[in-house]
Amino acid sequence: MVNDPLKLVVFDCDGTLVDSQHAIAHCMDHAFATHGLDCPGLEKTRTIIGLSLPEAITKLATPGTVDAAIVEGVTAAYKAAFFELRQAPDFHEPLFPGVHEMLAELDSRNWLLGVATGKARRGLDAVLARNALEKRFVTLQTCDNHPSKPHPSMLHSAMDETGVEAPNAVIIGDTAYDIEMGRAAGMLAIGVSWGYHDVDTLNNAGAHAVIDHFDQLPGVLETMWGTSRNAA
């Protein structure tokens, strides 16, 4: 049996594992309205999903309408709105099709799994618990302790925690921020076509590949890493 180096597969959360766009847009509009700012709406908000909140809010605001204090206030209002929304009995933030099956398949290859997200750790923990995914990931990186994507800090920490080197690591994400983060970390970067940035944007950001369904991922990774199912 070939003793391959450890492999690490890191996933973005919003737009990659879970479809959270409507909840995010609702809370963003609420937070902007609370401070008398024009609500960005769903289509505009989709473009910044993946960034940390202060960066996202600054990008969404009309130029010249916010300063650091207002960004801080809108950030707090957004967090409060999302926490309240998450408590509602009809709260719906579904996984994309095939997540559980794909994670089980990657795990069967003894590949290490992680998450790198612009969410706060509290929000990520809630997503994982709600979808029975708490035990799937060995490294969880959030905006609480890192600069916003596309800075590669989260991926550097994920590799440090797992002992995996960049050529044996990959980020899977739906936005240019994920792809740019992976490239900056020296990792492979694979886009997903069902998220919040279109395929051309992912390719222009430098994606090594873009998949249309999670069942394509194991084969794409095997090809990129030159591994086989029997060598794992």
Rank of each mutant, 00 (worst) to 15 (best):
V74C: 02
A129N: 01
E101P: 11
E161M: 06
D144Q: 09
L112Q: 07
K119F: 01
E105W: 00
S153V: 02
L51T: 07
D67H: 14
V99L: 05
H146R: 04
G123C: 02
D67P: 14
Q141F: 07
G73C: 10
S148D: 08
S108Y: 13
V66H: 02
G114D: 14
D144C: 11
A88R: 13
G114C: 08
K135G: 15
E101H: 08
V71D: 03
V115C: 00
E55V: 05
A120G: 07
A76C: 12
V71F: 00
L51V: 13
M154Y: 13
C143E: 07
K135H: 13
L106E: 05
L103I: 15
V164Q: 07
K79P: 05
M154E: 10
F83M: 06
G73H: 08
M159I: 15
C143T: 07
L106H: 11
G64H: 04
A158D: 09
S52R: 10
R130D: 12
E93W: 01
K59Q: 01
K59H: 08
N145M: 03
Q87E: 14
S52A: 13
K79V: 06
G50M: 03
F91D: 11
H151I: 03
T75C: 00
L113W: 13
G98S: 14
S52G: 07
T65E: 02
A69R: 03
A88M: 09
E84S: 09
D160G: 08
N110E: 08
R136T: 15
H146G: 06
A61T: 05
F82P: 06
M154P: 05
K119S: 08
L124V: 06
L113S: 11
G163E: 03
M102S: 12
A104R: 09
A56E: 00
A56I: 09
V115Y: 12
L103P: 15
S157T: 10
L112T: 12
T162G: 10
A132R: 13
A158S: 07
R130L: 04
S153F: 11
A132N: 06
G114W: 11
